[in-house]
């Protein structure tokens, strides 16, 4: 038991170190190359500690605080939210292939957000988009849940087919909005479909931060019950879990996290698939550790992906969703294969 505990601590420490490294790297590289001392200096200065590292150049300070820092914060939060949403979905579906992007929750949320953009729906600044994204995401999650489950289990085939149907429907909705929308909103919607961290603003970051913290806290609180749920719904019930309530709360948690992630940066697929799977391989399936490390791992993955997105092609900002799908697609094939060869994978 203590060996596993030590391993947990080691993984968390490594993830935090990787994460901090990623944040620093992400702050330094880009169109304007900053020195690490500029970054540390301006952060210290904002905390009221004046050092000789603080950049004298106002352009550097502005670039860091107005463009780069919100972008980094957004990648951290979105990565964490998507990875935790993936871990929770897998827990309630009892299926390691469930993921917000794959089963259509992300496109549902994107459709909601697109409706907000095209119709110009606002409610307290950035929250209007997030709210409609939540409505769309919740609708999609409920639909997948009730379509793909039978006798308390979710079959892989039904799950994926339901995902195809929802993705197709949301895709048609998005296409229609593209058709009726004006040029500005069209451009925004196209970027969503690709997923990008470009142009993240602090007020959006604040919304996503609230959503991610609340959703992750709820998931951690429910973690013990997710462990019991893996014994099957009946047995979880016999162990005192109120399965029906757990499901509903979890569906809302998934929708909230996914909507928060999708509302401002668009669809970034496979984070919720790859990260929980890796963490499960490292630490085993117990959900408390899984959710905590997925949160860190998801954040790290997107910070590094964003660095790649900004630097891979000089002078261009690649869509981050393109990168995660490039990594996630083949990984998904691998998971499908191993699920198929394992007994009951297709059952």
């Amino acid at each position: 038991m203590s060996r596993l505990h030590r391993r947990h601590v080691a993984v968390v420490v490594i993830l935090v170190a990787v994460l901090i490294g990623g944040v620093l790297l992400s702050a330094v590289v880009g169109q304007l190359t900053m020195s690490p001392t500029d970054v540390v200096g301006t952060v210290l200065q904002s905390m009221g500690i004046h050092t000789s590292w603080a950049p004298a150049d106002d352009v550097t300070v502005q670039a860091l605080w107005q463009i780069r820092f919100p972008r980094i914060a957004m990648s951290l939060l979105v990565g964490a939210a998507l990875a935790v949403a993936g871990a929770v979905m897998q827990a309630i579906f009892g299926n390691p292939l469930a993921e917000p992007g794959v089963v259509g929750v992300s496109s549902g949320a994107a459709l909601g957000a697109a409706v907000a953009i095209v119709t110009g729906f606002t409610l307290g600044g950035a929250t209007g988009i997030a709210l409609l994204a939540f409505v769309g995401g919740l609708g999609a999650t409920l639909l997948v849940y009730f379509m793909a489950r039978s006798n308390g289990r979710t079959e892989v085939v039904t799950l994926l087919l339901t995902g195809i149907a929802i993705n197709a429907f949301a895709g048609a909705g998005l296409a229609m909005l593209l058709f009726v929308g004006d040029t500005a909103s069209r451009e925004q919607i196209v970027f969503w479909q690709l997923g990008t961290m470009n142009g993240s603003r602090w007020n959006e970051v604040a919304v996503v931060a609230v959503v991610t913290v609340l959703g992750t806290a709820a998931a951690l609180y429910l973690a013990k019950q997710y462990d019991l749920l893996s014994l099957g719904e009946r047995t979880a019930g016999h162990l005192g879990v109120r399965v029906e309530r757990l499901r509903i709360v979890s569906i809302v948690v998934v929708a909230v996290l996914t909507a928060g992630a999708v509302a401002f940066v668009g669809i970034i697929a496979f984070v919720g698939l790859v990260i929980p799977h890796l963490m499960r391989m490292l630490l085993g399936p117990a959900h408390r550790g899984l959710i905590l490390t997925s949160c860190l791992g998801g954040a790290a993955l997107l910070v590094y992906s964003d660095v790649l997105a900004r630097t891979l092609v000089t002078g261009a900002d690649l869509p981050i969703g393109l990168l995660t799908s490039l990594i996630g697609g083949p990984f998904f094939f691998y998971l499908l294969r191993s699920a198929r060869t394992k007994a009951g994978g297709w059952a």
């Binding site: 390691p96 462990d227 162990l239 879990v241 085993g284």
Partner: peptide, 23 residues
């Protein structure tokens, strides 16, 4: 209750599964 379905969705160890009985 012991049901006839003996499935566990994720690769929990035997000790983990038995310890779940203590929940």
């Amino acid at each position: 209750v012991l049901t006839q379905e003996n499935q566990v969705s994720f690769p929990f160890t035997v000790r983990d599964v038995v310890a779940m009985g203590r929940a």
